[in-house]
Each structure stands twice: as structure tokens, then as C-alpha cells.
Design a protein around this nucleic acid. Sequence first.
DNA 1: TTTATAAATATACTGAGTATCAATTATTAC
DNA 2: GTAATAATTGATACTCAGTATATTTATAAA
Lengths: 207, 207
Amino acid sequence: MQETKSKKQNNLSWREEKKLKTKNTIQKNALRLFAKQGYEATTIEEIARASEISRITFFRYFPTKAEVVMGDMFELSVYDLTRQQPNDLTLIQALLATFQKLVNEADPQERILLSERHLLLRTIPELKTAMMIRLAEKYDLIRELLAERTGKSADDFTVRNFAGAITGIGISAWLTAEQDSAEGFIERYFSLLAENLKHLEAGLPLD
Amino acid sequence: MQETKSKKQNNLSWREEKKLKTKNTIQKNALRLFAKQGYEATTIEEIARASEISRITFFRYFPTKAEVVMGDMFELSVYDLTRQQPNDLTLIQALLATFQKLVNEADPQERILLSERHLLLRTIPELKTAMMIRLAEKYDLIRELLAERTGKSADDFTVRNFAGAITGIGISAWLTAEQDSAEGFIERYFSLLAENLKHLEAGLPLD
DNA sequence: TTTATAAATATACTGAGTATCAATTATTAC
DNA sequence: GTAATAATTGATACTCAGTATATTTATAAA
């Protein structure tokens, strides 16, 4: 079980580095092929051939075809970064700070990849639904964050409900940005998210 | 194109009646088999055999295996019933009235079928996600309802965001009821939904 | 070099979902 | 009632995602 860490000072061993590279190659080829000939029209076989691996190996790196588009999506960063925000901020203020940071720091390279992904995510029905699920799954993370900042239990009624509202607001931002879309989707998404959160903090007035 | 309505006074023709019966049979058999031997372990082939139809005919009635569980789910009723509530009610008040009505009026027969469905919907991962999507898809309907009652556009920022919050609150109620679950899931779900909506109307205070 | 381990692949399978075409069955017109 | 018409069903055959098992190849350690 103990992982190899004997001679190599790099915290990534030779093998692990290669694996990461393979994973990236697969994802890049997949996104390229999806963009070129469509998601449905692209088979896993093709992606594998383009990546010079076998069909079976593909499944060693990604459990499903959809997952190759979803990727990591820096969801963990959102969680971690938000936890690191000062304690005297409300959750919403902390989230706003996190988003600000993420938008500022995203390097161009990453931003382009992200754009390609998002294009697929809002175009292909199968992926749209996969994305919606991802969003809904954040519910539990939000509850945890909220529990930490309020000192309440994550199972508290108000915590649950507030977290639910944040989740829904996130979905709304996603769906709205998807409509306006075109260029700069990610910027639009984050700015909507920020507006929505501020509105929520104000109690969601309808006037 | 003109539909047959010549002699038959019943608004359902002979054929259409039979089709409805077949659809119900398929659904009943599917739910029975799923409950008995599990969702994944049950093939469409089996469901078809039990329903005395061919595998292909199954797909004429339900586009996917998951859809046979989802069914209609009286989502349309919620929409229609809510529209019929008095105009001086807020959307939340109207929704509360609708849920009240639905809980009171559900006949025992239907209630049992609904329970079976819900058991599957919160047990089988594939169906859980399908359900989540259903919930998220209500977003647009809620926006319409809200637009009607506020006189605003369904694309208005506050309408979108408020509708998003309601959606998320619905998801939260679903996930919470799913945890407590056991018996009386549906009652629990609706009562949570009501609590959550009231909390939302109060501006979602965290204290 | 030999040994142990992990990663890649080959083979073969299941089952969902689709397309095409032929066979039935019901509906309508005569 | 019978023939023509249209809808429903079904048979056959296919694609492709995803899985299980066993085998081969590459890597690391000894």
C-alpha cells in the first residue's frame, strides 16, 4: 500500500506523471473530436485511437463518456477557497470573494479549455443533465460551509433550506448564462452568480 | 390528420383506450419487477414479456427504462392547480394551497403507486439523478407562474432568481425527506416543502 | 538478472436504444 | 359486408457504452 516516495523527490512519481499526461491527452482529444464532429457522433473507440490507447484503457481514466467533459471543474477549489476566507464574512460574502479570486486568477490556457467544455455542457442534452446533477450535488458541500460559518448543524432546518436556495440560485445562473451565452460565457456565469447571491442576501425581494 | 371523432362520443377512441391500458400494464409490471429483483437486474426484455408485448413495443411507450418509473408524476397538475388559485395570493401562498389540495385529494390507490415509485427514485442512483433533473426542469414553469402573479417578465432578474430559489428549496426538501424517509415519504416531502416555502417567504433568515 | 506490482490490452459479453422493413390489426369508405 | 387505408406491432439486425476476466507488457525494487 505504501506509495513509492523513496528516491524521487518530486511528489509525482514517473508513473503518476505519465498517467496525468495520458489523462490530459485523452481529454484534449475528446474535446477536439466532440467539437469537430459532435458528441454523439464520436465514439470512445475514436477517442482512444486518437490518444493511442485502447478503448478499455479509456475507461481506466474516465468512468463514462460524459465524465471526460465534466472533468474536475475546479469544484474542490471553490470549497477549499471558501473555507479559507476570513471568519467574519457571511457565507455569501465568502463565496463572492472566492469567485472574484477564481475569475482573476484563471490563466488564459485554462480559460480556453473551460470555454470549450462549457460550450459542450450547454449544447449536448446528455451533458446538460450531467451538469445539472453536478450543481445539485454541491448542495451538501454548501451545507457544510454554511454550518461552519453559522455554528449550526448541517442538518439544521434553516441551514438546509438556505443551502437549497443557494443551489437553486446557482442553477438559475447557469441556465440564464446559457441563454445569453455566446462569447464570454464563464465571465457571464460568474457575474450572474454574484448578482444572484447578493439578491439572496437581501432576502430575495421581488420589487 | 383530423382525428377520429365521428361516431365515438367518448373522447377516447377504442385504440387510445387500449394504448392507455397497455401503458399502465407496462408500468405496473415494471415497478413490480423492479421492487422484486432490483432495477438494474431487470431487463426491458423481462418487462416486455411480463406485459405480453415485444421489447420493441416497450420503447414505443417509454423512451427509456428510467422513464417508466418517472411517469407523469402529476407535475402538470401542480402547474394547473396553482394557476387556478385566487389572484390575490402570492405564488408561495398559491403553491401551499395547491400542495394542501393534492395531499388531501390523493386517492389511496394512487398513493400506493406513488410510494413504490418514490422508493425506487431515491434508491437507484440512475433514477435519483433523473429525478433531480425533473426537479430542476420545473424552474421554467415556476418562472412562468411567478411572472403571472407579479406582472413581471419571466426573464426579469428577480423573477429568475426567486424561481431558482424555489427550485433549490424543492430539491432540498426532496433530499431531506429522502433521508428521514421510511414510511410516509410523500407526506413528509410535502410537509417539508411547505415549511421551506414559508421560510423562503420570510426571507430565509438563518436565526 | 530476477521478482513483484501495476498498468495496458485482448477477448468476450450484456443490455439499452435505434433503424428498417414486414406483418397485423383496426378504421374508414364504399 | 368488403376493400382500401392507416396505425400498431413485431422481427431482424445493428451500434455503442460499459463490465468482467484473463493475459501481456512495462516499471520498480532486490
